[in-house]
Amino acid sequence: MPQNIIPSTGNTPASAFERLLTVMNTLREQCPWDKKQTMESLRHLTIEETYELSDAILEADPDEIKKEIGDIMLHLVFYARIASETGQFDIVDVLNGICEKLIIRHPHIYGDTVVQSEDDVKRNWEKLKLKEGNKSVLGGVPPSLPALVKASRIQEKARGVGFDWEDKSQVWEKVEEEMQEFKEEFNTVSGVPVDIEKAEAEFGDLLFSLINYARFIKINPENALEKTNKKFIKRFQYLESKAAENGKALQDMTLAEMDIFWNEAKTI
């Protein structure tokens, strides 16, 4: 097989995107791995790349963010290329489609609708989606979203049509109410057998109310929890390394001994 000419580096957004399409087309036609791929085989890889982009954003690593955006863009043009082979749609249809949607959904920019705030924009967005055929405001929330993210999206969409608390103090009252109900259902001190199903339901209500409060004070609960996960991992791995330095295994240490290293980790 003759060697392919490497397409020149693009100096504009249009030429750089055209270069990606050229490379994608060549790989699809000539690479054994790329030729085998389907939308279904790429799906789990795309999910993985999305999480890698999310990690890079949380780490505030611009080089990694740039790389992961590129990986996701490759996947997007890959899907469009696969669809074009059966005449379903192509990349031009995809790009024009999203442009048309954005123009229609922004009548305050491309029409004569007047808005005063971000909330007005969100309300208009949801109204337009209903006119386009959505049967429910919540219909656009993907069922497969992780529960924490899904709760945030449900609350945001409800707010978009005016179904929301008026003040954050009301939301905090709800948090305290749900906390009390959970304590009543899951009071481990009393020694009374716990109804796990009821306790689970109350715990879910408590989480939902906390996510709601986070929204009111501009905290992204997914980001907040992931940062705590990363902090815990860093501290726990420090604990493991210090234990190893002292010739000990964690399972052989007392909690008091582990706490010494854990508290050291907090200062790093």
Rank of each mutant, 00 (worst) to 15 (best):
D61R: 03
A265P: 01
L58D: 05
P32Y: 10
E245T: 05
I47N: 12
N220E: 05
H44D: 12
M253Y: 03
E226M: 13
K157V: 01
G140R: 03
L74I: 11
P7E: 07
R28P: 00
L95K: 10
G111T: 02
T113P: 02
A16V: 06
R159Y: 08
F17E: 03
P107D: 03
I196Q: 12
G111C: 07
E173M: 12
S54E: 15
E59G: 05
D164G: 07
D61Y: 07
E200I: 08
I154R: 05
D63T: 09
T22A: 08
Q237D: 15
N25F: 06
P2S: 15
K150E: 04
D252M: 10
S84Q: 11
C31R: 10
C31E: 15
A265W: 00
L210I: 15
V171W: 02
H106I: 00
E181D: 15
K234Q: 12
G139L: 06
F17D: 04
F163V: 15
L53H: 01
V194P: 00
I82V: 08
E68N: 05
W262R: 04
V114I: 13
K67R: 11
F78L: 13
N263T: 11
F17T: 11
D119H: 08
Y110H: 14
A249F: 14
L76E: 02
S84I: 02
N25L: 09
I65H: 00
E48L: 10
M258S: 00
S15K: 12
T22V: 10
S169W: 10
A199C: 07
F186T: 06
D259S: 11
E202M: 04
K198S: 09
R235S: 01
D120P: 00
L53G: 02
W33E: 15
V161F: 07
I65N: 00
M1N: 13
N223Q: 15
W165R: 09
S84Y: 06
K230G: 06
P13S: 09
W165S: 11
V192R: 13
D63G: 09
L210E: 01
K129D: 04
Y79C: 05
V161R: 01
I104G: 04
L250E: 05
W125S: 02
E181L: 08
E197D: 13
E264A: 09
A201G: 09
A56K: 00
